[in-house]
Amino acid sequence: MTSENNINVMPGAIVCEESKLDGDITIGSHCIIHPAAIISAEAGPIILGDFCLVEEQAKIIHRLRPEQTNNETTPVLIIGSHNVFEIGCTVEAAKIGSNNVFESKCFVSNKVNVTNGCIIGAGCKLIEEQTLKNNTIVYGSKCFQREGLDRPVTQTAQMDTLSKMLPNYHHIRRPMKKDYLN
């Protein structure tokens, strides 16, 4: 849809050049985007919060529901901070809060609102229209839901290691200059 890619990378973020970023995307500081990750802002801009980790083959797609397409205002997908998108997940959620974990190969459709501290378990598919409460955990082949005690722990050590390792082996997209921001 969008002919021109407008990628804004905040300082401190590590965005591999090979990653596929389409559309109007703003990536928050200290984010890590792996080389084979796909972020596609089809329907409108995506704003990724700070300290997000997008692993290999993860897809974040901003896709509108059919009834929203006629609206004149273009909606913005705002993704909170400290989210982890694990390998092979496909996330099209309409809203994503903070501290969520999307485990490997899970699928979240664009009818789902994800709040804060949720864990979508490996291979779980959320298709129906719903809003996940804070700290919801979806697990198992039947996608059982339960409420967690606390939000999942942030993977600081993993992020630190990756931010040291990735620049050694990959070309990194250059973040915007600080003075430009001001």
Partner: peptide
């Protein structure tokens, strides 16, 4: 590790 139930719950 599947459903994140913990003994603290």
């Amino acid at each position: 590790l599947l459903c994140r139930w913990s003994s603290r719950d």
